[in-house]
Design a binder for these strands. Sequence first.
DNA 1: AATGAATGAGCTTTCATTCAT
DNA 2: GATGAATGAAAGCTCATTCAT
Lengths: 198, 198, 198, 198
Amino acid sequence: MNEKFFSLKKEKQDKMINGAMQVFSLYGYRHASTDEMVRVCGVSKGLWFHYFENKPGLYSFVASYGLKYAMLELSMKPFTPGMDYFRLRYEIEACKMDMMEKYPYLPLFLNSIVREEDPDVAELIREPRQKYAEQLSGIMMQADYSALRNKEDYLLLIDMLDYTIEALMADGYRSPVFAPGRYLMEVQKHINAMQALL
Amino acid sequence: MNEKFFSLKKEKQDKMINGAMQVFSLYGYRHASTDEMVRVCGVSKGLWFHYFENKPGLYSFVASYGLKYAMLELSMKPFTPGMDYFRLRYEIEACKMDMMEKYPYLPLFLNSIVREEDPDVAELIREPRQKYAEQLSGIMMQADYSALRNKEDYLLLIDMLDYTIEALMADGYRSPVFAPGRYLMEVQKHINAMQALL
Amino acid sequence: MNEKFFSLKKEKQDKMINGAMQVFSLYGYRHASTDEMVRVCGVSKGLWFHYFENKPGLYSFVASYGLKYAMLELSMKPFTPGMDYFRLRYEIEACKMDMMEKYPYLPLFLNSIVREEDPDVAELIREPRQKYAEQLSGIMMQADYSALRNKEDYLLLIDMLDYTIEALMADGYRSPVFAPGRYLMEVQKHINAMQALL
Amino acid sequence: MNEKFFSLKKEKQDKMINGAMQVFSLYGYRHASTDEMVRVCGVSKGLWFHYFENKPGLYSFVASYGLKYAMLELSMKPFTPGMDYFRLRYEIEACKMDMMEKYPYLPLFLNSIVREEDPDVAELIREPRQKYAEQLSGIMMQADYSALRNKEDYLLLIDMLDYTIEALMADGYRSPVFAPGRYLMEVQKHINAMQALL
DNA sequence: AATGAATGAGCTTTCATTCAT
DNA sequence: GATGAATGAAAGCTCATTCAT
């Protein structure tokens, strides 16, 4: 990418980033079209390619940027070591909701990045995607897992919760306007349901 | 579609069906190209449209066909009522592996059909997709769920298992050649892990 | 073309000829499709090409055939020399209506042949088209033109009438079902109108 | 259509318009191919669809544009009321020849628009086509028809002249290069011939 | 820096024509 | 003789990308 992108007014940078996030997260890498980004955020087609050589370059930038921003937000939250696992899991979703203020599609985009398998971009986003995963697991590792009795297999329960939470978010974005409050309530409800099983 | 398709040699029918299943399941409806199907199964471009009016028509046929074939295979297995839930869940995956003999990409395709949301085909496949889901839940409903103690929330555990199994299959197809035996082993391992928690 | 065509049952020959006439006259040479002929007259695609090498060959045959048939019909009518021009002109249209019994689209087709300018077939039909024109003018030449006083320019009035009559026929075929009686009435009305001017 | 088309250099606009007029008027709407337009006027295929959504949109634009241009040219000529009908009819053809300076195929295109019956575009051009017809008849209505004695049927003579003139133009364009001077001479000759009959 | 006109490869689809049966 | 399955070139159209302004 062209580093001069960062010399643009922050406002314009974000307008472009948000447009890209929206279109990429709704349609996936391959099916996202530059025309739609132009329509969504009112910045000329030529400019995208002025700053980001091509479509993979654009995706790779926005994905890295979104992942980094998420990592920064996560690092600023006081996830105190020893916090109950289920509580912590909820707080992470709450943190994602905070990201929406600046980047409304970022929570959905984060999930779509993880699922993205297009060979044109798979390698380009491998590293930041992994770092993000590592930070998340780093945070989660410090949790208090005592509620999950069985040491051997508790990772599977965690996976289940992750899948469920991702599905709830996809549902949320499918509605005309995403309601963060409602989303968090749904997440809490499902967490409670699982906790009751233990 | 043109009913004369069924007058073709079964061998050729299956070659075309398999080509379509492969390309559709790997890339999704929108991104699947007729050119690639031509390449994959050595049948001319014109022929696809001779039998299937257009791309939605082709998808709708192959999806319905695949779902029906899966339902037939499922209906021929002796899923005895009262069978332990986890055992039953495994047997269903085993049954999918049997389908691979004739349609190697069918198990993956079944999952991709469920996820397909392209507005051009959503309505066309709604009914067979639902019937398939109903047959599956019909089978599962007869299982012995006594292993899952807590009546309130056991559905979440089931969802978790379903998500896990789908992910394992996606992993399997990502490898150069899908190994049914290995897949079933992985499925069993994960089922065991969950059972141990109860 | 393959002369064996004439060994077919007359009934089948005519079914094919009528199908071709209909589609060619309604859509013109280029836009007429073999698929539509198959649909219209229920004879397989392969057979067309078995008897008529290719599309120009088919057109050239059917056009020549139609023109010859028209010439035969014309030659069998007792167009007595010295008949009043306007009466004769009407009788020719009446004769065309007789052709409809065997070839319902022939009158329209005759007009469409005259207008056909596609370079793929222009040369192929030049000769029969001209012969037909010559026979017609041969017949017309023997008419009694005394009603048309001015020797110098009467050819233009004749052209006008020809154009008008052609337009009336096109109108007639545009209606759901062509009514020969009504058509002849319209022709007579217009002839009368012109006669009144002299 | 995309209004930005008008921001192109006039020269390029006209190059595209002329290419479309030429191909459309020579082959008719259905048989006119975008590839041929590309070849004829050296502008890429993509650009046509950048400005004109699809083929009907393109035809509808060029037809409307051509009709409007013709109406403008007609409105700028001093067709003085009371001018002799035959003189006026000639002047209209002379006016069409003036249009050729900017749009060499426009006179032929105007005729082809009137004959166009493809259902994909019939409705799209109905209104401008009618307005053009109305302007023409508005002009002709003010003519001095005293030369045409018989009030009852003079409309038929007018039709005849119109058909003849249209045919002469078609003939003219069939020659390697259309010669406006020669065309006007032919028109005059035929007008004279008819006048002599009255 | 910023625009959007311009391109052409690639997509879905049509259709004259061939050929095995 | 008769069929219609099969082909591939060409049509209308899309879209990532380039480039003159």
